[in-house]
Amino acid sequence: MVSARVIRNLKSEFKTSALAKIGLALVVGIILVATFAPFIAPHNPTEQRLPESELPPIGFTDTNEKTSSEMVDGEIQTVTETEVIRADSDYVLGTDGLGRDMLSRIIYGARTSLAVGVLGTLLAAVIGVPVGMYAGYHRGRIDDTLMRIADVSLAFPSLVLAVALIGLWGRAAIRVPDPFVVTGMVSDMPEFFVLPITVVIVVGLVNWVWFARVARGEAMSLRSQEYVKAARALGASDNRIILSHVLPNAITPIIVLGTVQVAAIILLESALSFLGFSGTTLSWGFDISQGRDYISSGQWWIASIPGLAIMLSVIGINLLGDWLRDALDPGIQGEGGAA
């Protein structure tokens, strides 16, 4: 478990590594933004203001060519006027095609990414860790069966399997009341957070295998340790040994894998929303798919900005994962699973 040595390693690694500091700052920042979104967002992220649509971010301008026809001396003349669209200081990152504030959408999008990333990873771990522990501890036929199931599961790319399952099951979402809005601390913000529950379940189901593999490997190497043998000699049941001796000693690599998985699932969620397989429209991936229609007409920011948000979050989590790995367990390499 978390011993004094572990904490010491974490601290010393943190002090020497600039990247670890950047990673932690990014992750803490995103968690704060996601949690307090209603306070931070300058506008309601779903409110449409058509007259203020397609405004560029501050510091940029956009042009709009208007063609009109007039009758001059009995002839039709076509007049092309170039209208310059300036940024509005009310909308720091500009607005999208429906006049929704980009900054507010980015802030609220962090909630979806983080919620799906964390819940999906937890689900994958809850399925994968017990199965892997049990198989690795007992070996034999159970283990063989598990490994074959894992092989079959790995034969389907996560994204393909996720898309297929969501296509079959539909795009269900749960509306979770936003405590800040419901209690009246903030007004004019969405009353509900829409959690795309099918996406959470599916990403958990397609990623459990990574946890099962790591847990199995750990259980296999721990089962022949002296203290496990001692516990067995004292008459402890297998389940008790797994729970109180094997699992606590295997927790470090599982945590490191979990961190990498949150990043991988955030990327997977954004891909699913981009393809239209999500239950919410407040998501970075969804905004990129909307912005895609505007890249040939010059409104570059609608697709670009959400992508930067994804990139920064995933970089942050990956750096955090590197830090944990280097500090906790220099021997392992976690490179499992991605979109």
């Binding site: 954004s270 890249i295 697709a303 990956n318 979109a339």
Partner: peptide, 17 residues
């Protein structure tokens, strides 16, 4: 680091842009 953290579909759209 940037490469493993970038969504490939977004990278594609940026290159198209």
């Amino acid at each position: 680091l940037a490469g493993i953290s970038t969504p490939n579909f977004w990278l594609g759209i940026m290159m198209i842009l």
